[in-house]
Design a protein around this nucleic acid. Structure first.
Lengths: 318, 318
DNA sequence: CCAGTCAAGACACATTTGTGACGATTACGG
DNA sequence: CCGTAATCGTCACAAATGTGTCTTGACTGG
């Protein structure tokens, strides 16, 4: 009856849930909970932390929250978006992606209809979103990963993101079983035409909802850090006018698609198929993402936006 | 743009929301938040507490939580309920009504369709539920209070409960503008037939969902404490075999309606009209409520139950 | 059977949080 | 204009929390 179907064994979700209940709902002290449940306080403390990590406790703040909603409505009008969500920028050294991702997880929970098909990009933001989606079960949802994989598993990995999201939604997950960038244009074409890849990509235009992320090409770009592109590519892409990419489509500041040697090798859903998705949510925050976010909107690759206050402020000033 | 439509002025919801965001989502310390926002730490601390009081932050624990879900399925089968929700019993001296109420608020949020009509009873549990409902707006929901009022405003008051719930749901609220017990049977009949009362009661059988509470007649009964009934009535009701009441309908242990001088003066929806409501959720926890909960189920006054572990355990043992 | 390894408990300590006392400042009614 | 009361900030301290280190003990692979 008690389900411990999670991938890793060493975590008693039922116990954690009970601890969370006593702590968050009942407001008891960790000490007392430990006594009652015959645990050490430290254990309680750690399970509490782990439960929050895993998104076992969901903390929602009643929206709208003041100045942010002002920005939201301005963004919505200005860029003709379906929705805009603006969260406060971090005041500490918190990663803005965790915050925007948390909001994105909420958003997905609210907008993915039961049995719906969700496409996702990858990255720190998406990772945080996956951790913050409200768990579902038995709805036959589907998750489609909108990019190829990365061979060397960095801390953030596309397949990992997708599997986490799928697990949270109790969804079937579809992966593009190919690298993000093929070794050669010829190989790319072969892969695109070959079977597992072709049929997964064909699903894209049928999706109900896409959760997209933005890769920037600023000095802070994580693409370099994660080894997605080389520094040479980074330089030449910038020289070609690119400000970043959405699912491997490199865009200039006006939202035009940039041609580049990389783009002849990328394995990704076409711009058209992405545009066919009714609700295309872009989740990206921080100053470095402003240019690519604006470009993505202009390219009509997104019609809903989740971002933070600082980026939103910059966007409405444009 | 920033809406401060709450009844009491001296609470900056937008600021509180921002503080909550930085604290709960970003995980910053109160000290740092205070610095950044130019507030004192104490102020941050108090606003955090107040925000939680007011249900501005919603904490959800991923269900199902182990042993409780076991009880839930047993209750569901045993009593042929639509749903059963069991929450852990308090381990400290927390009021069980707050915990059961919190779960009830969640339940309402999940099951009241937009634009739906909700009937509610009153009491500590309902009060907690109202504080825990997820805020909605612009859905034209309706809330109908299923009992008359109490003249002297105790800490928990029917009109108060209803108004809080209606405010949370941005709902129109309908009150029975009559006392819970009329001074005489004749006056009761006059009131039932008279206009504002009659039409509100007529709405009852059209409701989508009712959130009911159980009044017990044990030694711990709050009905005495709140001065709803006199000690004499309490004694004679018990003598007549009553174990408690649901919306003013006194029941014996088998769920039969008890006749009593009080019941000739009570102003409430008929049993029939209550039974016509598709989803009738009874929220009540603690040992003292076991008998009346069982009676209510037998009387088919409820087909969904929210309770705590101790009461649930007692119920399945019957 | 014996290290070696790893998880979990005991303990200790620094940080963070909740709360009360006290004084300053402001609003308000006479 | 003054006194009163209420509010808010400052300080201080106790409680609760997060995080190390060290130790115990169980399991593992020779």
């Amino acid at each position: 009856m008690t389900d411990n179907n999670d991938a890793d064994g060493s975590f008693d979700a039922a116990l954690a849930a009970r601890i969370c209940w006593h702590y968050f709902k009942e407001g008891q002290t960790q000490e007392l909970i430990a006594q009652q449940l015959n645990l050490t306080r430290k254990r309680v403390n750690r399970m509490l932390a782990e439960a929050r990590e895993r998104g076992l406790v969901q903390i929602t703040i009643q929206r709208p929250l003041g100045p942010c909603s002002e920005l939201e409505s301005r963004l919505t009008k200005m860029f003709e978006l379906r929705h805009a969500i603006v969260v406060p920028s971090p005041i500490g050294n918190t990663d803005v992606r965790v915050l925007v991702g948390a909001a994105a997880g909420d958003y997905i929970s609210d907008h993915l209809t039961p049995g719906g098909a969700l496409g996702i990009a990858w990255g720190g933001t998406i990772n945080a979103a996956a951790q913050n989606v409200r768990r579902r079960s038995g709805e036959a949802n589907r998750v489609v990963l909108l990019c190829g994989g990365l061979a060397e598993s960095t801390s953030i990995n596309p397949y990992d993101n997708a599997s986490m999201m799928a697990r949270a939604l109790d969804a079937r997950c579809y992966y593009i079983t190919a690298p993000m960038f093929a070794a050669s244009p010829e190989l790319r074409d072969l892969l695109l035409a070959s079977e597992p890849v072709r049929s997964v990509l064909a699903m894209v235009s049928k999706l109900d909802l896409a959760l997209l992320s933005a890769v920037d090409l600023t000095d802070q770009s994580r693409a370099l850090e994660y080894g997605v592109i080389t520094r040479n590519d980074w330089r030449s892409l910038r020289a070609a006018g690119a400000v970043g990419d959405i699912c491997g489509h490199y865009l200039d500041a006006d939202g035009n698609v940039i041609e580049h040697s990389l783009t002849t090798r990328v394995i990704n859903p076409s711009v058209k198929s992405l545009q066919a998705i009714p609700l295309r949510v872009l989740a990206a925050g921080g100053a470095s993402k402003v240019a690519i976010v604006r470009a993505a909107i202009r390219a009509r690759l997104c019609n809903a936006l989740i971002t933070d206050e600082s980026a939103a402020t910059a966007l409405v000033r444009s």
